[in-house]
Simulated assay, not measured.
Amino acid sequence: MDEDVQRGFETLAIHAGQEPDPTTGAVVPPIYQVSTYKQDGVGGLRGGYEYSRSANPTRTALEECLAALEGGVRALAFASGLAAEDTLLRTICAPGDHIIAPNDAYGGTYRLFSKVYERWGVTCDPVPLGDLEAVRAAVREGVTKAIWVETPTNPLLGIADIAALAAIAVEAGALLVVDNTFASPYLQQPLTLGAHVVVHSTTKYLGGHSDVVGGALVTSDAELGERLAFHQNAMGAIAGPFDSWLTLRGIKTLGVRMDRHCANAAAVVKLLTEHPAVRQVLYPGLPDHPGHDIAVKQMRAFGGMVSFRMDSPEAALRVCERTKVFTLGESLGGVESLIEHPAKMTHASAAGSPLEVPADLVRLSVGIESVEDLLADLRQALG
Score class of each variant (00 low, 15 high):
residue 29 P to W: 10
residue 65 C to E: 00
residue 91 T to C: 01
residue 331 S to W: 09
residue 117 Y to F: 13
residue 337 S to T: 05
residue 312 S to L: 11
residue 309 R to W: 06
residue 197 V to L: 01
residue 271 L to D: 03
residue 143 V to M: 11
residue 352 G to W: 10
residue 285 G to W: 05
residue 205 Y to I: 00
residue 4 D to G: 08
residue 329 G to N: 04
residue 51 Y to M: 14
residue 284 P to R: 07
residue 201 S to H: 06
residue 359 A to E: 09
residue 260 R to G: 02
residue 74 R to M: 06
residue 93 C to W: 04
residue 44 G to L: 01
residue 124 C to H: 06
residue 35 S to K: 13
residue 32 Y to F: 13
residue 211 D to G: 14
residue 298 Q to A: 08
residue 207 G to R: 10
residue 246 L to Q: 12
residue 322 R to W: 04
residue 100 I to R: 00
residue 287 P to Q: 10
residue 343 A to L: 10
residue 109 T to K: 07
residue 179 D to V: 11
residue 181 T to M: 01
residue 290 P to G: 03
residue 331 S to T: 03
residue 56 N to M: 04
residue 161 D to M: 02
residue 282 L to N: 00
residue 136 R to P: 07
residue 269 V to C: 02
residue 27 V to K: 09
residue 283 Y to P: 03
residue 344 K to Q: 15
residue 237 A to Q: 06
residue 195 A to K: 00
residue 364 L to T: 13
residue 239 A to C: 11
residue 355 L to M: 02
residue 157 L to C: 15
residue 89 L to G: 01
residue 224 L to E: 05
residue 173 G to D: 02
residue 209 H to F: 15
residue 20 P to N: 12
residue 373 D to R: 11
residue 40 D to E: 09
residue 269 V to Q: 00
residue 365 S to K: 14
residue 151 T to E: 10
residue 254 L to V: 00
residue 46 R to Q: 07
residue 103 N to A: 14
residue 30 P to C: 08
residue 94 A to V: 15
residue 45 L to D: 01
residue 182 F to D: 08
residue 176 L to P: 00
residue 308 F to E: 06
residue 202 T to P: 03
residue 30 P to V: 13
residue 147 I to P: 06
residue 11 T to R: 14
residue 79 A to F: 04
residue 185 P to N: 11
residue 47 G to T: 07
residue 335 V to L: 11
residue 226 E to G: 13
residue 354 P to V: 04
